[in-house]
Amino acid sequence: MQRTILSIEDDEVTQLLHKIEFEDAELIVNIEEAWSGQIALDYFAALNKEEDPFSKIPDLILLDLNMPVMGGWEFLELFSKDYPHFVERIKIFVLSSSINPEDKIRASKEPLVRAFLYKPLNEKDIEIIRKAISE
């Protein structure tokens, strides 16, 4: 069964690069794109209304931190509050170019975040993702 990754990322080029890197690593996944935290929330809201939302929820979220309208941390806060039933089934990775150490510390303290990955994705990162989605 093909796995689904929700990529929450406002930068078009970054989204494109993710796809190419997954392709190169022969990680065959279905990638859903959300351009901000708000759009991702909307996505889950829509999903939640369906009859069998669990069959469609993504296996993994790649979460950017700096985004317009709603950033990654805010999304995480609202998402875990509004959809706790989804949260436990989804592996969340922060994928950011932030070098703010506070972000790193916060990620390590946040139980929902599996790992803090730095852009751009390298082979090691993809292996971690591959491993995570095949669990």
Binding site: I39, N66, M67, P68, V69
Partner: peptide, 11 residues
């Protein structure tokens, strides 16, 4: 700086 609150293209 670089805070955007609307999902508007040229923001």
């Amino acid at each position: 700086l670089y805070q955007r609150f609307h999902n508007i293209a040229n923001s």
